[in-house]
Design a protein around this nucleic acid. Structure first.
Length: 458
RNA sequence: GGAGAGGUGGCCGAGCGGCUGAAGGCGCUCCCCUGCUAAGGGAGUAUGGGUUGAUAGCCCAUCGAGGGUUCGAAUCCCUCCCUCUCCGCCA
């Protein structure tokens, strides 16, 4: 039995064990594992898929896909035909043997079947691998409601909440305000650039913000708090779409373990439902997790180098929802609202922005960003990103639910959003709550998390 | 880290290399019977892929994963992963 003549399911399982096709020589993943755009949709409506991808600035090579698909079809047919022949022949041999007949002629009749099958299988696997790579590299086509555009300049502001405070003094930035409580020198000494050390009440504020966010989402929004690993394997990252295309953005563990530091809690949390068939009645699932996030920020050299806006390590409270496919658009609005609640409770001015097609992340069908006002920069900056991935991640993960109407498994839809990025919230609090004398007040909502203090002791 | 045991369908649990996609039990669904919270009888009940107008059929694959032996592997061989028990270490 040649490589690849094992079934689809075994490949999917292999994948789930972290044995990846990419560079590992292991079996090819199939549908579930490769994940992506629905292969059937790709075959049947490739034009519309191509159109969607064009909005993201990606030109789908329709001719190449169709050629590959034609070969795949022919070879799969051949392989299955040969396998069937082999099965039938083997069965006959078994029966003959049981009846006490001479099996030599039957065995001889099998002839080159084995070799033919091995050859066909080899070819089939090669084509599937090629097809797999091709499809896997395709991002999620944007939803129809996503504004067109190539980059962030085409994003659409949907609404604003509160006008920025009109300071009658020159607002200072968070680095200046934090003073010695933000010890960037120590961080550089310990770890290098893009890390930070927080001290005293600033560290406490950081922790308090985190607690406040989690508590709000658990108590008021009905999320289940989960604690998850910060190191994950390749398969997990493939499920949510960080791999195989964006390995450079991740910190990998160097050594025997083929693991990576999570770039966001989305990765471990969404993968909770990987390879499962959920009960219809259990949907929607809502998880909130607080984790550190690790990003290499490759390609962002020189960008946001001041302060702690863009770090290799930062904390985030993440919201994840697993929902019925017909509910995901409502869920996106809800989830965005849950993130907004934090900003409102903290009374931080923000605006809501719909990302244009060109600005979407790989797996997202639609993304709504929340941007908080930073007085020192005199502009709104991203503090939360809420996305509906529809069935894109679910396909990669084989995350399904039992459809009560058909009795069959269907893919769920997945969503996530920051609720919020803690470090950036810290910046926003510092800058928006400064009083002009270098002091920073504690937002009312955070008082109880700060031991009743009304001012930060910086 | 050392020693041992084990990984089979939603769960439990059989399985001399061939008729086992997989006995049996439990659970679940539907039907029948039953005059009353129970019992009994019958049928059905995995997933992925392909084909197709089709969630109708039909075909292929899957018994932790990968590879090997063989006409044929859940069953034999090799490698890896995981779980459990005991010892050691440890927050």
């Amino acid at each position: 039995m040649g490589a690849g003549s094992r079934g689809f399911r075994s490949r999917v399982r292999g994948l789930q064990r972290g044995l990846l096709p990419i560079g590992s020589g292991a079996g090819l993943p199939d549908r579930g594992g490769t994940g992506m755009i629905d292969p059937r949709r790709l075959r049947l409506e490739i034009r519309s898929v191509a159109e969607g991808l064009r909005l993201r600035g990606i030109e789908l090579d329709v001719g190449r896909f169709e050629a590959l698909e034609a070969r795949r079809k022919r070879l799969q047919d051949e392989v299955e035909r040969l396998r069937r022949r082999r099965r039938v022949a083997s069965k006959q041999i078994g029966e003959a043997k049981a009846a006490g007949n001479d099996i030599a002629p039957l065995v001889g009749a099998v002839g080159d079947l084995g070799d033919d099958l091995a050859d066909a299988t080899r070819e089939f696997d090669a084509v599937r691998h090629e097809l797999d790579e091709f499809v896997k590299a395709l991002p999620n086509p944007p939803d129809d409601s996503v504004p067109p555009g190539a980059d962030e300049t085409a994003n659409i502001e949907l609404r604003r909440w509160q006008e920025p405070a009109d300071f009658n003094f020159e607002p200072r930035d968070h680095v200046s305000l934090a003073s010695t409580s933000l010890d960037l020198e120590a961080a550089v000494k310990i770890s290098g650039s893009r890390f930070s050390v927080l001290r005293g009440s600033l560290a406490r504020l950081h922790r308090g913000l985190t607690q406040f966010m989690i508590d709000t989402h658990v108590r008021e929004h009905g999320y289940e708090e989960v604690y998850v690993p910060y190191l994950v394997d390749r398969h997990t990252l493939l499920g949510t779409g960080q791999l195989p295309k964006f390995e450079d953005d991740l910190f990998a563990i160097d050594g025997e373990r083929d693991q990576f530091l999570i770039p966001t809690a989305e990765v471990p949390v969404t993968n909770l439902v990987r390879d499962s068939i959920l009960d219809f009645a259990d949907l929607p699932l809502r998880y909130v997790a607080h984790t550190p996030c690790f990003r290499s920020e490759a390609g962002n050299y020189g960008k946001d180098t001041h302060g702690i806006f863009r770090q290799h390590q930062f904390e985030k409270v993440e919201l994840v929802q697993i929902v019925h496919p017909r509910k995901s658009w409502d869920a996106l609005d809800e989830l965005t609202g849950h993130a907004e609640t934090i900003l409102r409770k903290l009374e931080l001015p923000y605006r809501v922005v719909a990302l244009c097609a060109g600005d979407l992340g790989f797996a997202a069908a639609k993304t709504i960003d929340l941007e908080v006002w930073l007085p020192a920069e005199r502009r709104y900056r991203e503090i939360s990103s809420c996305s509906n991935f529809v069935d894109f991640q679910a396909r990669r993960m084989l995350a399904r639910y039992r459809n009560p109407e058909t009795g069959r498994p269907d893919y769920v839809h997945t969503l996530n959003g920051s609720g919020l990025a803690v470090g950036r919230t810290l910046i926003a609090v510092l800058e928006n709550y400064q009083d002009g004398n270098g002091a920073v007040h504690v937002p009312d909502a955070l008082r109880s998390y700060m031991g009743g203090s009304t001012r930060l002791d910086l």
